[in-house]
Write a protein that binds this DNA or RNA. Sequence first.
DNA 1: AATGCCGGGTG
DNA 2: CACCCGGCATT
Length: 377
Amino acid sequence: MTFHAFQQEDVKSDISRKLPDQQFLLFTTKEEDLKTAETKKLNRAHEHEKENTRSVCLLEQKRKVVSSNIDVPPARKSLEELDMDKVTAAMVLTSLSTSPLVRSPPVRPNESLNGSWKEGGFVPSSTSSSGYWSWNAPSDQSNPSTPSPPLSADSFKAFRTPSQADDGIDEGETSNLLFDEPIPRKRKNSMKVMFKCLWKNCGKVLSTAAGIQKHIRTIHLGRVGESDYSDGEEDFYYTEIRLNTDSVADGLSSLSPVSPSLASPPSFPTQDTIRPETSCAKTETKVMTPLSRSAPTNLYLVHTDHAYQVSPTHNRAAGSGEQKQTHTVLSSPPRVAFGLRKPRGEGKKCRKVYGMENRDMWCTACRWKKACQRFID
DNA sequence: AATGCCGGGTG
DNA sequence: CACCCGGCATT
């Protein structure tokens, strides 16, 4: 146990902190630590690559544009293709959401069809104790990017593949939806169709596809100028939800365990614009890196975060202030108990990684019991 | 029970 | 400021 020597208080850790990873290994003997050392490396790399994130994102976007141009009539795909598309989309989303690191062998939307996607560079379990890589595990059907249990299978009808839905009404309409089709008659029987933004930590629900797309485009993709231009990118980031109007309550509660107010964006104006912490609006430095981290992953947390940052300036047009167009249904203000805390960042933390013993290897924040800065989620 | 980390100290 | 920690939320 040579390394015990290093754990003593007297051998202050500056050394160890400055050591490159290789040597870091010397200090960690437990097998678990070895594992985490790997992780650490990854994270390091991650940090270094953040810079490139933007371009990577663009790349990904382009790919998708291309592919979507090729499969011309989206509504004409075979079921199988559709499924694969879902998977593919999910893959992309997942890869985007987790980290740019993952992109290494980029997920190529088209080629992924023949099964090669498995080795698409998804570092499997090794890194995650919590298992956020593993949505594709034999969990459940077509619910790729969202590990979210609360969405009941039927409310989560389609992951941007409305045409496969049961009632034929969508058939050629999908494409219309892309452009300002307010879906008034869309509610057949007691069905209400809503569109939910899948962007991480966003949960915006709008009643029109156009609305949600515009939302995604302006808020998450940061395409401000090109107001109406759509390359289909947004399609990947929202989902269509069918709500049985007679069980609306149910549907809603399953949508947002946090607050039933989800479906009433009106009083939650440009919430997303203001959400600085994580992605888009991150001051100056790395302004537009929307895809870098926050592609849709989980559906909840939605409000807590905003609640935190909602500022009095919300309602005025902050460049993209027009997205309050479609607020629908339910007019209860989202006043309901805001989460008091920011949701805890997922991902490893120094404490977990290095362990109590190696406290001096922690990032300062961790040592001060602040939010970890090394493994920022 | 262990972790993560906010809020609020202290020097 | 850097540093620490009580205490609560989350896991």
